[in-house]
Simulated scan of single mutants.
Amino acid sequence: MSTTLRAHRRPARRRLSDPLFNAVTFAILSFAIVAVIYPLYFIAIASVSEPSRVYEGQVWLWPVGFTLDGYARLLGDPLVWRGLGNSVVYTSLATFISVALVVSAGYVLSRRDLPGRKTITFLIVLTLFFDGGIIPKFLVVRDLGLLDTVGAMVLPSALAVWNIIIARAFFETNLPDELREAAEMDGASDFRFFFRIAVPLAKPLIALMIVIHIIWNWNGFFDALIYLSTPDMYPLQLVLRNILVQSNLSGSGSLTGDLGSYEEAQRVVELVKYAAIIFASIPLLLVVPFLQRFFTQGALLGAVKN
């Protein structure tokens, strides 16, 4: 009898505890969402609000003193649009090259019949712990004649070791040796097996790598800061950096050169800073959400063994 009563009481306890657990979980997740989204939302409303109202703490949930002066000055500068075009070119080329190298290297290292496989893997992983530093990298890029070229923005960081490890784990998990042996019996060469079988099966992995490299290359500005000296070749993020640090919209004129007072100049500087952040974030906000499911699927397939 007592056992029967305890068996009936347990579901009741679970029913009483579930709403509390759900409420706590909902509260924690809601706080996390607000903590992530609100800063970007605040920048968005601050970009169309009077800076004096922002300084006074009047801008919280909606714009105060609506104005589009910051966007008008930002979008009126040709260097901003040139930087946007440069970023699209650099990101596209770098992503294509990086994904091709990562998938190829990951597949090769997953082959158990590769001579010296362990040694090659060790040498590649070793680079995660030891790095030559900025100066040796700059000297190599300079000696190769890549300074102030598109190659400087694409080649130095084209191959990420951690992504190779992910790709290797993916192929080891999802591409059994029996499949390759069967293809060899049918007369398929290594190249044909790679392009006709391995690559189609690696679509989730490729999508994962595309998302990672798009975000990485679009947000990167440090390589451009080191390797580029011509303003016309600057990517958008470096243009944004110059706006935030130097308050300068272009190399030809100052942000506040046509303004008559210091107060008006500072007002425009603040508006442009907020507008530049939003302008640089819009492309990723439009692209990445549509690739999110591929990102999750690829990450799981590359990390979980059957």
Rank of each mutant, 00 (worst) to 15 (best):
R192C: 04
L175Q: 10
P200D: 07
W218I: 04
S52A: 15
T3E: 13
D143H: 10
A27V: 09
S52Q: 14
L284Y: 05
F170S: 01
L101C: 06
T25H: 05
N306G: 14
T127K: 00
L126A: 15
I33A: 15
L101Y: 01
V161G: 01
L109Q: 02
R293K: 14
V239K: 04
T91N: 05
A167Q: 02
F294L: 10
L291E: 07
P231G: 11
V161A: 00
P289G: 05
T67G: 07
N248P: 06
I43T: 15
Y227N: 00
S49E: 07
F294V: 03
S261Q: 07
F21P: 04
S49Y: 02
L144D: 13
G133L: 00
E270M: 13
A44E: 02
Y262A: 12
F193W: 06
R13H: 14
S189A: 12
L244K: 03
A44Q: 01
F193G: 06
A100P: 02
S254N: 11
Y262W: 07
S87G: 10
V268T: 13
A94L: 02
V154Q: 05
A207Q: 15
F42E: 14
D113P: 01
V288P: 02
F26I: 10
R293W: 04
A100N: 08
V89M: 11
S2F: 05
I226K: 01
E270L: 10
T296P: 04
D113E: 15
R14T: 11
A105Y: 05
I120H: 00
V199T: 02
F294N: 12
P156T: 04
S98T: 09
D131Q: 14
I277E: 10
G57V: 08
I37W: 03
W162D: 00
Y71G: 09
L84S: 11
L139E: 14
Y90E: 10
L238W: 05
I197R: 00
A275M: 11
I282L: 14
L93D: 09
A276E: 08
A276K: 00
R14V: 11
W62F: 15
G65V: 08
S252D: 15
L240G: 09
F138M: 02
Q266V: 06
R53P: 00
D69T: 14
S47P: 06
Y41F: 09
P289I: 01
L240I: 14
N86C: 03
G85T: 08
S92D: 08
V150L: 11
V108S: 09
R142H: 13
L147S: 10
E50V: 00
L238R: 09
Y227C: 00
A12R: 11
N219D: 13
G302D: 01
Q292H: 13
S250P: 08
A188I: 03
D69K: 12
P204T: 06
V125D: 01
Y90I: 10
I164V: 06
E184C: 02
R241E: 14
I278L: 12
V125N: 01
Y38V: 07
F171V: 01
L40G: 14
R111Q: 11
L240M: 15
V269I: 12
L93M: 11
N217C: 08
V88M: 13
L228Q: 09
E184D: 02
R14Y: 09
R117F: 02
V59I: 03
I28E: 09
L259K: 01
R53Y: 09
V154H: 02
V304A: 09
L128P: 03
Q297K: 15
A198K: 01
R267Y: 05
V80F: 08
F294I: 03
A27Y: 04
A198S: 01
